[in-house]
Simulated scan of single mutants.
Amino acid sequence: MLKFLPGILLLQVITVVLVLIAPTELSGWGWLRLVIPVGIVGVLTAAWFSSMAAHHNKDEISRLQECHAKEREALRVNAERAKHRVIKQAHQETIQEVRRTSTQANIKVGMAFAGAAGIGGLLLLTQFITLGLLMLTTAGGALGGYVLRIRQEKAKMELLPKTKTKPRLINASPTTK
Protein backbone atom coordinates (compact mmCIF):
# COMPACT_ATOMS: atom_id res chain seq x y z
CA MET A 1 0.00 0.00 0.00
CA LEU A 2 3.04 2.28 0.19
CA LYS A 3 2.75 2.61 -3.60
CA PHE A 4 -0.30 4.83 -3.14
CA LEU A 5 1.25 7.15 -0.52
CA PRO A 6 3.08 9.47 -3.00
CA GLY A 7 -0.13 9.88 -5.02
CA ILE A 8 -2.17 10.71 -1.92
CA LEU A 9 0.42 13.22 -0.73
CA LEU A 10 0.61 14.80 -4.21
CA LEU A 11 -3.20 15.10 -4.36
CA GLN A 12 -3.25 16.79 -0.94
CA VAL A 13 -0.45 19.19 -1.89
CA ILE A 14 -2.22 20.17 -5.14
CA THR A 15 -5.52 20.66 -3.29
CA VAL A 16 -3.86 22.84 -0.61
CA VAL A 17 -2.07 24.90 -3.28
CA LEU A 18 -5.32 25.43 -5.23
CA VAL A 19 -7.15 26.46 -2.06
CA LEU A 20 -4.35 28.86 -1.10
CA ILE A 21 -4.21 30.54 -4.52
CA ALA A 22 -8.00 30.78 -4.77
CA PRO A 23 -9.43 34.28 -4.24
CA THR A 24 -10.88 35.04 -0.83
CA GLU A 25 -14.24 36.03 -2.23
CA LEU A 26 -15.73 32.91 -3.85
CA SER A 27 -19.33 33.63 -4.63
CA GLY A 28 -21.57 32.30 -7.39
CA TRP A 29 -19.47 30.89 -10.24
CA GLY A 30 -16.21 31.60 -8.41
CA TRP A 31 -16.41 28.25 -6.70
CA LEU A 32 -16.14 26.56 -10.07
CA ARG A 33 -12.64 28.01 -10.46
CA LEU A 34 -11.65 26.00 -7.37
CA VAL A 35 -13.82 22.87 -7.72
CA ILE A 36 -13.04 22.10 -11.41
CA PRO A 37 -9.21 21.91 -11.05
CA VAL A 38 -9.52 19.94 -7.78
CA GLY A 39 -12.01 17.56 -9.50
CA ILE A 40 -9.72 17.10 -12.51
CA VAL A 41 -6.73 16.38 -10.24
CA GLY A 42 -8.90 13.93 -8.22
CA VAL A 43 -10.05 12.08 -11.35
CA LEU A 44 -6.47 11.86 -12.69
CA THR A 45 -5.23 10.59 -9.33
CA ALA A 46 -8.06 8.00 -9.20
CA ALA A 47 -7.13 6.79 -12.71
CA TRP A 48 -3.49 6.59 -11.62
CA PHE A 49 -4.45 4.56 -8.51
CA SER A 50 -6.70 2.31 -10.59
CA SER A 51 -3.84 1.60 -12.99
CA MET A 52 -1.48 0.81 -10.11
CA ALA A 53 -4.06 -1.51 -8.52
CA ALA A 54 -4.66 -3.30 -11.84
CA HIS A 55 -0.92 -3.90 -12.30
CA HIS A 56 -0.65 -5.10 -8.70
CA ASN A 57 -3.56 -7.53 -9.25
CA LYS A 58 -2.08 -8.77 -12.52
CA ASP A 59 1.30 -9.40 -10.85
CA GLU A 60 -0.38 -11.20 -7.95
CA ILE A 61 -2.44 -13.39 -10.31
CA SER A 62 0.61 -14.34 -12.37
CA ARG A 63 2.54 -15.15 -9.17
CA LEU A 64 -0.33 -17.35 -7.94
CA GLN A 65 -0.62 -19.08 -11.31
CA GLU A 66 3.10 -19.84 -11.26
CA CYS A 67 2.85 -21.14 -7.69
CA HIS A 68 -0.14 -23.32 -8.60
CA ALA A 69 1.63 -24.62 -11.71
CA LYS A 70 4.61 -25.68 -9.57
CA GLU A 71 2.32 -27.31 -7.04
CA ARG A 72 0.35 -29.07 -9.80
CA GLU A 73 3.60 -30.39 -11.33
CA ALA A 74 4.78 -31.59 -7.91
CA LEU A 75 1.45 -33.39 -7.45
CA ARG A 76 1.80 -35.01 -10.87
CA VAL A 77 5.33 -36.17 -10.11
CA ASN A 78 4.28 -37.53 -6.71
CA ALA A 79 1.29 -39.29 -8.27
CA GLU A 80 3.53 -40.85 -10.91
CA ARG A 81 5.99 -42.00 -8.25
CA ALA A 82 3.17 -43.46 -6.18
CA LYS A 83 1.79 -45.19 -9.27
CA HIS A 84 5.24 -46.63 -10.02
CA ARG A 85 5.56 -47.83 -6.43
CA VAL A 86 2.12 -49.50 -6.53
CA ILE A 87 2.91 -51.20 -9.84
CA LYS A 88 6.26 -52.42 -8.49
CA GLN A 89 4.62 -53.72 -5.31
CA ALA A 90 1.87 -55.47 -7.31
CA HIS A 91 4.54 -57.04 -9.53
CA GLN A 92 6.43 -58.31 -6.47
CA GLU A 93 3.22 -59.74 -5.00
CA THR A 94 2.41 -61.42 -8.31
CA ILE A 95 5.87 -62.98 -8.47
CA GLN A 96 5.53 -64.26 -4.88
CA GLU A 97 2.09 -65.71 -5.64
CA VAL A 98 3.42 -67.43 -8.78
CA ARG A 99 6.30 -68.91 -6.79
CA ARG A 100 3.96 -70.10 -4.04
CA THR A 101 1.56 -71.66 -6.54
CA SER A 102 4.42 -73.24 -8.48
CA THR A 103 5.85 -74.72 -5.30
CA GLN A 104 2.47 -76.16 -4.31
CA ALA A 105 2.00 -77.58 -7.81
CA ASN A 106 5.49 -79.11 -7.73
CA ILE A 107 4.72 -80.81 -4.43
CA LYS A 108 1.46 -82.22 -5.77
CA VAL A 109 3.06 -83.42 -9.00
CA GLY A 110 5.96 -84.96 -7.06
CA MET A 111 3.51 -86.82 -4.86
CA ALA A 112 1.63 -88.08 -7.92
CA PHE A 113 4.87 -89.34 -9.51
CA ALA A 114 5.94 -90.94 -6.23
CA GLY A 115 2.55 -92.64 -6.03
CA ALA A 116 2.85 -93.92 -9.61
CA ALA A 117 6.39 -95.17 -8.93
CA GLY A 118 5.18 -96.83 -5.75
CA ILE A 119 2.37 -98.58 -7.60
CA GLY A 120 4.90 -99.67 -10.25
CA GLY A 121 7.18 -101.06 -7.53
CA LEU A 122 4.28 -102.85 -5.91
CA LEU A 123 3.34 -104.40 -9.26
CA LEU A 124 6.93 -105.61 -9.68
CA LEU A 125 6.85 -107.22 -6.26
CA THR A 126 3.56 -108.95 -6.96
CA GLN A 127 4.88 -110.59 -10.13
CA PHE A 128 3.22 -108.18 -12.60
CA ILE A 129 6.60 -107.37 -14.09
CA THR A 130 5.49 -106.04 -17.47
CA LEU A 131 2.80 -103.84 -16.04
CA GLY A 132 5.14 -102.69 -13.22
CA LEU A 133 7.95 -101.78 -15.64
CA LEU A 134 5.47 -99.96 -17.86
CA MET A 135 4.22 -97.97 -14.86
CA LEU A 136 7.77 -97.13 -13.69
CA THR A 137 8.99 -96.01 -17.12
CA THR A 138 5.86 -93.90 -17.66
CA ALA A 139 6.29 -92.20 -14.28
CA GLY A 140 10.02 -91.66 -14.90
CA GLY A 141 9.44 -90.21 -18.37
CA ALA A 142 6.69 -87.88 -17.12
CA LEU A 143 8.88 -86.76 -14.23
CA GLY A 144 11.79 -86.13 -16.60
CA GLY A 145 9.58 -84.04 -18.90
CA TYR A 146 8.20 -82.07 -15.98
CA VAL A 147 11.71 -81.33 -14.64
CA LEU A 148 12.86 -80.28 -18.13
CA ARG A 149 9.92 -77.86 -18.46
CA ILE A 150 10.68 -76.33 -15.06
CA ARG A 151 14.34 -75.80 -16.05
CA GLN A 152 13.30 -74.18 -19.34
CA GLU A 153 10.93 -71.81 -17.55
CA LYS A 154 13.64 -70.82 -15.06
CA ALA A 155 16.11 -70.23 -17.89
CA LYS A 156 13.54 -68.09 -19.72
CA MET A 157 12.89 -66.04 -16.56
CA GLU A 158 16.63 -65.47 -16.13
CA LEU A 159 16.95 -64.26 -19.72
CA LEU A 160 14.24 -61.64 -19.30
CA PRO A 161 15.77 -58.20 -18.78
CA LYS A 162 15.44 -56.88 -15.26
CA THR A 163 15.24 -53.17 -15.94
CA LYS A 164 14.90 -50.57 -13.28
CA THR A 165 12.49 -48.03 -14.64
CA LYS A 166 12.39 -44.47 -13.45
CA PRO A 167 9.01 -42.80 -13.01
CA ARG A 168 8.14 -41.00 -16.20
CA LEU A 169 6.81 -37.49 -15.77
CA ILE A 170 3.40 -36.78 -17.23
CA ASN A 171 3.39 -34.05 -19.90
CA ALA A 172 7.17 -33.74 -19.70
CA SER A 173 8.62 -32.10 -22.76
CA PRO A 174 10.84 -34.48 -24.75
CA THR A 175 14.46 -33.47 -25.02
CA THR A 176 15.69 -32.81 -28.51
CA LYS A 177 19.28 -33.27 -29.62
Results as ranks from 00 to 15, higher is better:
T45H: 07
L18N: 04
I40Y: 02
V98W: 10
P174E: 06
V109I: 14
K58G: 05
R81S: 06
L160D: 08
V13I: 11
L125H: 12
C67A: 12
P167K: 03
L44S: 09
M111P: 00
H56W: 08
R100K: 14
P174F: 02
T101M: 13
T101C: 12
M52Y: 04
V109F: 08
L148N: 11
K88Y: 04
T176A: 07
K154R: 14
G115T: 08
R168G: 03
A22Q: 00
L44N: 09
R33Q: 09
K3L: 13
G145V: 03
Q152T: 08
R76E: 14
V13W: 06
I170G: 00
T101D: 10
C67W: 06
L20C: 04
Y146R: 05
L5V: 14
N78R: 14
K166W: 10
Q89M: 12
L34M: 05
Y146N: 10
L18R: 00
G28F: 02
L131I: 07
L34P: 01
L169G: 09
V147P: 01
V109W: 04
Q65P: 01
T176Y: 11
S62E: 15
T176I: 15
K108T: 05
I119Y: 05
Q104L: 14
I8V: 13
A79S: 14
G141I: 14
Q96I: 04
K70V: 05
L44T: 06
A112F: 05
T138S: 11
K58W: 08
S51A: 14
E66M: 06
L148Q: 13
T130P: 02
Y146A: 06
V86G: 00
A79H: 12
L124I: 07
V109P: 00
N78C: 08
I95S: 09
I61F: 08
Q89N: 11
A82P: 01
R151G: 02
P23V: 01
R149H: 14
W29H: 03
Q152P: 03
A74E: 12
T24R: 07
P167I: 04
E93N: 15
K83Y: 12
M1T: 06
A142Q: 07
Q152R: 15
P6R: 01
K88D: 12
A54C: 03
V17A: 14
H68A: 09
V43C: 06
E93L: 15
G132R: 02
L134E: 09
T101H: 10
A117D: 03
H55G: 04
F4I: 08
L124V: 06
N57Q: 13
H56P: 00
A114M: 04
Q89P: 01
N106W: 07
L159E: 15
K58M: 08
L125C: 06
N171Y: 10
E158Y: 04
I129W: 12
I40R: 01
I170T: 11
E60F: 05
L123I: 00
I14M: 06
I40H: 01
L18W: 01
L9V: 10
L122P: 01
S173C: 02
K156R: 15
M1N: 09
